[in-house]
Amino acid sequence: MTPGRPAADEPEDGAGGLVIFLNGTSSSGKSSIAVELLRILDEPSFHIPVDAFHAMRTGQEIPADRLATVLHNTWRGYHRAIAGMAAAGNHVVMDHVLSAEWRLRDCLDLFVPQNVVFVGVHCPRAELERRERERGDRPPGLAARQLAQVHAHGLYDIECDTSRADPLQCAVRIKDFLTNRPTPTAFQRLRARQAPTT
């Protein structure tokens, strides 16, 4: 390899990959949209859900006094894994639950804001409760408890309602949005909100 030149599998321009950031409550339909996005996106992309990180953790029971720390560290690790994949030039579809305020702040600190498409995935409470009952693998009322915080920041690049559009329709809307993304992005505007004033 010539010194100073990238390897054959490294991008020439050093640009980071795009992060399509799906945020919504449990059972709102994020993973279903992500599956359709991977099927229709033009560029090779990875779907990296936070649930996959929780699933990789050891199956042994975590003592109650350590549970909060273990979960916090898992979320922090997830954010850094996404940032690392994007920094290496990979396109990533992540599905997330911003049900704690610090999670958004952490992502704003880590991600390149112009490379993030922030997608609000909405679903009415009654439909969320119906989906939870149908799934049977989530604590009853989990999604309803998350609703107040998940969308509290109130700012997205694009939003969808999965009670009105199916996963493929949502994915097509997101893909169409990618061809003409406005600036500043939602992440750029949210970062500006955080910046200390002098």
Rank of each mutant, 00 (worst) to 15 (best):
G4D: 10
G4T: 03
P6A: 09
E10A: 14
G16I: 00
G16S: 14
G17D: 06
I20K: 04
S26E: 07
S31G: 15
S31K: 06
S32I: 01
I33H: 06
L37G: 10
D42C: 01
H47E: 02
T58L: 09
Q60L: 12
P63N: 02
A64C: 03
R66N: 00
L67Q: 08
L71G: 00
R76M: 01
G77M: 04
Y78V: 05
Y78L: 06
A83F: 04
M85H: 09
A86S: 15
A86V: 00
M94R: 08
H96P: 00
L98W: 13
E101K: 11
W102V: 05
W102C: 04
L104Q: 08
L104H: 11
D106V: 02
L108M: 11
F111A: 07
P113E: 01
V119K: 03
C123H: 02
R125I: 04
L128D: 03
E129R: 01
R135E: 05
P140C: 06
A143T: 11
A144K: 01
Q146M: 14
L147Q: 13
V150C: 15
H151M: 11
H151Y: 06
H153N: 10
E159N: 02
Q169L: 00
V172E: 11
R173H: 10
I174F: 01
D176F: 02
T179L: 10
A186S: 14
R191D: 02
Q194N: 04
Q194M: 13
A195F: 03
P196S: 00
T198F: 07
